[in-house]
């Protein structure tokens, strides 16, 4: 899994460094997925029972899977989806307004 994460990060950075804004967005997409998977991997994937606590007890009995990373990733996926939807609309509008999809041409606001 660690190699997958590394490859995803590398691919994302490579895509973000390309000149086309579409590839920029693909890069962003890969980047968020890479970060999500990273959370999953480093938090320690364990194969265990569902994290349910028996009635009356205050700690779970047997080895249970840690539910927290999944909750984090679920939140992060939702956020990433919203942001991604926004960026897709943004590049579409930018393409209409600016008339190019080449990032090198978009330097009116640079100094």
């Amino acid at each position: 899994m660690a190699y997958v994460v590394g490859a995803l990060f590398a691919a994302a950075i490579y895509m973000m460094l390309r000149r086309s804004i579409v590839k920029l967005v693909i890069g962003l997409m890969l980047l968020t997925n890479a970060a999500n998977l990273l959370v999953f991997v480093v938090a320690g994937m364990t194969r265990g029972a569902p994290p349910l606590i028996a009635e009356g007890a205050s700690v779970p009995g047997a080895l249970v899977a840690d539910p927290l990373p999944q909750a984090l990733i679920l939140t992060a996926i939702v956020i990433a989806f919203g942001v991604l939807a926004f960026s897709v609309v943004l590049i579409h509008r930018a393409y209409e307004v600016v008339g190019t999809d080449d990032l090198d041409q978009m330097k009116d606001t640079d100094t």
Binding site: M16, T32, V39, P69, S87, L90, A94
Partner: peptide, 29 residues
């Protein structure tokens, strides 16, 4: 036009920062 061009840079760099932040949160956890 200027807003679009500015926004692309702003969005990209801030999302990049967010991805680094999320990775750091994951490693911390």
């Amino acid at each position: 036009r200027a807003q679009m061009e500015g926004a692309i840079k702003y969005v990209t760099l801030n999302l990049f920062a967010s991805a680094i932040f999320l990775s750091a949160v994951g490693i911390t956890y």
